[in-house]
Amino acid sequence: MKTRPSTFKPDYVRQARERYARGFTDRELAEALGVARVTIFRWCAAYPEFAEARRAGKSAAGDRVTIRITLPRTMMPGTGVTVHLVPAARP
């Protein structure tokens, strides 16, 4: 059984490093590249340079935490608030 050729492009390494450094999540990067989130994990396994770009970019971004808060049903459907917690600066 033949498998489909990968949609991976070498430029994705640069894009991953830059976007992760800006705080992108795996889901957001996948959306930006037009692939499923699982594809990001497959590329990490298949392309060591992509995995390193992901690690380095996430490290540069620090520990960004996103929390999704669901508002009461009296609010319009699909509305919510996103809160970004930023670690305190180290002395």
Results as ranks from 00 to 15, higher is better:
1 M>F: 03
1 M>H: 05
2 K>V: 11
3 T>C: 05
6 S>W: 08
7 T>R: 14
7 T>N: 10
8 F>P: 04
9 K>W: 05
9 K>A: 13
10 P>K: 14
10 P>G: 07
10 P>S: 08
10 P>N: 14
11 D>P: 01
11 D>Q: 13
12 Y>D: 09
12 Y>Q: 13
12 Y>I: 03
13 V>K: 09
15 Q>D: 08
15 Q>A: 05
16 A>S: 15
17 R>I: 01
18 E>I: 14
18 E>N: 11
19 R>T: 04
20 Y>N: 03
21 A>C: 04
26 D>G: 10
27 R>S: 11
27 R>Q: 12
27 R>G: 02
28 E>C: 00
28 E>D: 10
30 A>Y: 01
32 A>Y: 13
34 G>F: 06
35 V>Y: 07
36 A>E: 15
36 A>Y: 00
36 A>N: 14
37 R>P: 11
38 V>S: 15
40 I>H: 01
40 I>N: 00
40 I>S: 03
41 F>T: 01
41 F>R: 02
44 C>M: 15
46 A>T: 04
46 A>P: 02
47 Y>R: 14
47 Y>S: 04
48 P>G: 08
49 E>A: 15
51 A>K: 09
52 E>G: 01
52 E>T: 12
54 R>T: 06
54 R>N: 14
54 R>V: 15
59 S>Q: 13
61 A>R: 10
62 G>R: 07
62 G>D: 06
63 D>F: 00
63 D>T: 04
64 R>W: 10
65 V>D: 06
65 V>T: 14
66 T>Q: 13
66 T>N: 07
67 I>R: 15
67 I>P: 01
68 R>C: 06
68 R>M: 11
69 I>W: 07
70 T>A: 14
72 P>Q: 13
72 P>V: 07
73 R>G: 15
73 R>S: 12
77 P>A: 12
77 P>S: 12
78 G>C: 06
79 T>H: 09
79 T>I: 00
80 G>Q: 07
82 T>Q: 05
82 T>D: 05
83 V>D: 00
83 V>F: 09
84 H>Q: 13
85 L>C: 03
85 L>Y: 04
86 V>R: 10
86 V>H: 08
86 V>M: 04
87 P>K: 15
88 A>W: 08
88 A>D: 10
88 A>K: 14
89 A>T: 07
91 P>W: 02
